[in-house]
Design a protein around this nucleic acid. Structure first.
Length: 496
RNA sequence: GCCCUCAUCGUCUAGGGGACCAGGACGUAGCCCUUUCAAGGCUAAGACCGGGGUUCGAAUCCCCGUGAGGGCACCA
């Protein structure tokens, strides 16, 4: 039997990082077993549907590289993959349940239910629906039908005994059936609830394994009994550990914004990670390390290498926070492994977005040294400011600041003039030639015979930044003319 | 209130009865390297929630506490 798993988000906004983790684990599991990964949209609650959300979900999944074999955009033999387009099927099977005495019509109104729930809450108990419509006499039922009252269809859940969930990650979980609610299966608007839709779809779509978050454990007994009522075989269950807020309190939510220990807001939507300059490979790598580990003490790995080692049994059941610090480190590692050209190309859209014009050659010149410096693609902004900001910081540079204890003011001036003359004429104007010539100039002007102090002064003069890429690369990126301009204005500071 | 889940350094984790005075990673601190910032190398501090069992032996198994989390919708 081939493995078939699904990721079934509801289109209420964007892809949540916790959802991405669930999707990733499903995807890895499918790929490992040569099975299918299915995307299904659970939009049976029209009140919560958000326009454009399906597209956003797909974009985020694609950005992460989690390709689905069946689902919106790609089709498949078990479609449609959007639940609102399958309404008739759910109605049909709810009817079947009714006919076979596994369900009943409930005429309680939403308001009545709400009031009873409030009363339960006031009594500091919360048992859920009291099953009153389950025990309506035939006469009472007939009367309500005659009145044409709207109704929902509820599951006739078992009351006695226990239900056992066989969870691959947690082992056997036994739940008293008294805990299983007579859940609403079909709402009064004729659409199914999650419970019905998910069971019907999973069955007809041939889903073999359900990997979903821990928060679903409590409804698993209901689902198991629904499968039993239908006479269908249950899939294998694996409940993934919950992703918590950075504080460790509560699950990470995209609605309530999350903050870390320093009070900084934390990223939650996948698109936020993308916009913040994280690489999809790094995000996958990061997610794979949360609740699962590669083994061999290896933290950084391409997801493709994780696939053959991935086993549900190895997933750590404990709820977890996301180690955002580690994501920064991992992302830096991934950036470090990029080819300079690749990095330059990745950087371009980020610079464009900020309206910074940087030539391809300049970017390429500086890419090798940027590789080991960036944690996020957005960090490039600070390092490269000197490339687009000709006037910026001019004011903060003075002749005094351009001196150094190993390179006093007059020597600093002379060294910069020498550098100017050298840069004006050097051929070829490339990294190695510049490095050799400027190092010699530096050694000749400092009191300790080392180029270091001079290079610091040169950096300040040319980039007007205390922190910049290495100075030779910076000069190459700037180009001969602009570098000379910077030196000229630095030298002019001595004549003020 | 009822039910369910979980519990190893600050954080993410390895650990499946002796190989553990508990390993790795991030973060933190120090040193080295060094043209800034990084990266890299080395070093350091840092954990088995508590109590009972079982066993010759427990981080590992069982029980009870405690703590944290989840669920108890005509939301998923």
């Amino acid at each position: 039997m081939t493995v078939r798993v699904r990721f079934a988000p509801s289109p209420t906004g964007y892809l949540h990082i916790g959802g991405a983790r669930t999707a990733l684990y499903n995807w890895m599991f499918a790929r490992k077993h040569g099975g299918q990964f299915i995307l299904r949209i659970e939009d049976t609650d029209q009140k919560r549907a958000v326009k454009g959300a399906v597209q956003a979900l797909m974009d985020a999944l694609r950005w992460l590289g989690l390709d689905w074999d069946e689902g919106p955009g790609v089709g498949g033999p078990y479609g449609p993959y959007i639940q609102s387009e399958r309404a008739e099927l759910y109605r049909q099977w709810a009817g079947w349940l009714l006919d076979h005495d596994h369900a009943y019509k409930c005429y309680c109104t939403a308001d009545e239910l709400k009031a009873r729930r409030a009363a339960q809450k006031a009594a500091r108990s919360d048992q859920g629906y009291d099953r009153r419509c389950r025990y309506l006499t035939p006469e009472e039922r007939a009367a309500r039908e005659r009145d044409g009252l709207p109704y929902t269809i509820r599951f006739k859940a078992p009351i006695e005994g226990v239900t056992v969930i066989h969870d691959v990650i947690r082992g056997e979980i036994t739940v008293p059936n008294s805990q299983i609610a007579d859940a609403v299966l079909l709402k009064s608007d004729g659409l199914p609830t999650y419970h019905l839709a998910n069971v019907v779809d999973d069955h007809f779509m041939g889903i073999t394994h359900i990997l979903r978050a821990d928060e679903w454990i409590n409804s698993a007994p209901l689902h198991i009994n629904l499968y039993a009522a239908f006479g269908w075989e249950n899939p294998v269950y694996a409940h993934l550990p919950l992703v918590l807020n950075p504080s460790g309190r509560g699950k990470l939510s995209k609605r309530a914004q999350a903050f870390d220990d320093h009070g900084h807001q934390v990223l939650v939507k996948v698109e936020e990670f993308r916009d913040a300059g994280y690489l999809p490979q790094a995000v996958n790598n990061f997610l794979a390390n949360v609740g699962w580990s590669f083994g061999d003490d290896r933290e950084k790995f391409p997801i493709e290498e994780a696939i053959p080692r991935f086993r549900l049994e190895d997933i750590n059941p404990a709820p977890t926070r996301l180690p955002y610090d580690k994501l920064d480190w991992l992302n830096g590692q991934w950036i470090q492994d990029m080819e300079p050209l690749e990095l330059a190309q990745a950087l371009k859209p980020f610079l464009d977005r900020q309206g910074h014009e940087v030539g391809a050659e300049a970017l390429l010149a500086v890419a090798p040294s940027l590789r080991v410096r960036l944690k996020k693609l957005t960090d490039a902004d600070d390092f490269l400011r000197f490339l687009w900001d000709d006037e910026g910081n001019t004011g903060v540079i003075t002749a005094e600041r351009l001196a150094h204890n190993k390179l006093p003011s007059d020597a600093a001036l002379r060294s910069l003039q020498a550098a100017r003359d050298f840069i004006a004429t050097v051929q070829p104007f490339d990294l190695d030639t510049l490095a050799a010539g400027l190092t010699t100039i530096g050694e000749a002007h400092t009191t300790n015979g080392k180029a270091g102090p001079f290079l610091g002064v040169l950096r300040l003069a040319v980039t007007r930044q205390d922190v910049s890429p290495p100075v030779f690369e910076s000069i190459v990126a700037l180009g001969r003319e602009r570098a000379l301009g910077r030196l000229d204005s630095a030298i002019a500071l001595w004549h003020k």
